[in-house]
Design a binder for these strands. Structure first.
Length: 112
RNA sequence: CAAGUAAGCUGGACAGCCGCGUGGGCAGGUCGAAAGGCCGUUCAUGAGGAAAGUCCGGGCUCCGUAGGGCAAGGAUAACGGGUAACGCCCGCCGAAGGCGACUUCAGGAAAAGUGCAACAGAGAUAUACCGCCUUGCUUUUGCAAGGUAAGGGUGGAAAGGCGGAGAUAAGCGCCCGCCCGAUGACUGGGAACUGCUCAUCGCUGUAAACUCUAUCCGGAGCAACACCGUGGAAACGCAUGAGAGCCGGCCCGGCUGCGUUUGGGAGGUGGCUGGAGCGCAGCGGCAACGCUGCGCCUAGAUAGAUGGCUGUCUUAAAGGACAGAACCCGGCUUACAGGCUCACUUGUACC
RNA sequence: CCGGGUGUGGCGAAGCUUGGUAUCGCGCUUGGUUCGGGUCCAAGAGGCCGCAGGUUCAAAUCCUGUCACUCGGA
């Protein structure tokens, strides 16, 4: 992921939940805010409610892969947090990809 | 062939493209005074049988402690062995279950003491309600005193059980035969224990109630612990418009009181994986396991690396059951689609 | 990683220490009171005490395992 670093600090997550713009469907929720940097910052949230460790790890990897494959289509200079909901744990890869892209278009994150 | 019992193994394989963690190499690029960092490229390697629950036992680290003992609190509980150790494992004994292979068992002490046993029942660890018998009074009837545990009824449990004779006022292991149980002696066994033996005795249950006996245990945990450590804080020293530090090639200019020590929030580095390790062979042992020889090195992350797409094969099914290392080992418990191997038991048929 | 607590009718709680009969409040049903409703009065239904084993004559209670929820500390 060339233009992206991962988002780790908890206070940035909390700032995003409070001030960022939100869009969601049954599987995922996205929080976005401009960060004034040349690169993006990506945070993933998968809570224990979604499933066991195996389920959560697989979901995190899939979300990271979806972001990696579509990174070049997205705008730069934003903080982006993807929250997985309970139904995402039993969803297939293609369903997750479809949800992610639809939510990104709603937030006008897709450049081309 | 059918039904079953027990032990063990396995938990998809191969290939291509894109991508990730760790370690190594590189005549490469970039930053830097250097050490080195970052990028690139290439090679190797990269989750489990339970990694899970965190129920036991150890290593390791710190705290406490002269060494040790006692008390409190907790754990375990037939016997012998294995092990670094264990509450684990193996063997064996006993009890319960099963036609059997086999399975299950917190399986010490109730004759050291205390407690509890609802309801029912006369009576719950001692007792006389009905009944039986004797004596006295009264003389259709019955009343009082005493003896009796054979019969009745209650209960989970009622003073060993069944049968019999004598004896007795009526009765009773009071006596006899058989059986059951406890203790001691003897036999066999290394021991728990055992029995065609002998003697004595006949004792409710509960210790997953208190308790007693024997053995074991100091406490906390890798977010342990060690090191580096900006800001802020404290102490000491220096300085008070001169000097010092930072930005800058230098002047001008701008900013800041400065240095040392203590302390250890955020962050970083170590701890961090070669170990009671794995495989094969031989020997000892019924076994758990041990000894010897040879060979091998096999994750080490820190918001946490294994994912996406495609093809082929095995298959009933591979878009898969349960499930993700987090300091490391030995066990236990719990979850689990299926597949395979070996041994044994019972039944049926045939030779 | 370490250590606690809770689970009982539809809801909220007691009972567990010291084993034997599961109780209380709200709610629900029926009847009465009222012109009708509420209030009030009377009667009633509804529980394998989270699950599975064990100890015991007998378990919500004691013991073991397990599941879910929840709290605290480093």
């Amino acid at each position: 992921m060339k233009y992206t670093v991962s988002l780790k600090e908890n206070h940035i997550f909390r700032r995003l939940y409070r001030k960022g713009s939100t869009v969601a469907d049954g599987r995922l929720a996205l929080y976005v805010r401009k960060n004034g940097r040349p690169t993006n910052r990506l945070g993933l949230t998968v809570s224990t409610k979604v499933g066991h460790a195996v389920v959560r790890n697989r979901l995190r990897r899939r979300l990271r892969e979806i972001y990696r494959l579509h990174e070049h289509e997205l705008v730069r200079g934003v903080d982006l947090v993807v929250v997985a909901r309970v139904r995402a744990g039993s969803s297939r890869y293609q369903q997750l990809e479809e949800s992610f892209l639809r939510l990104c278009r709603k937030l006008e994150l897709v450049e081309k």
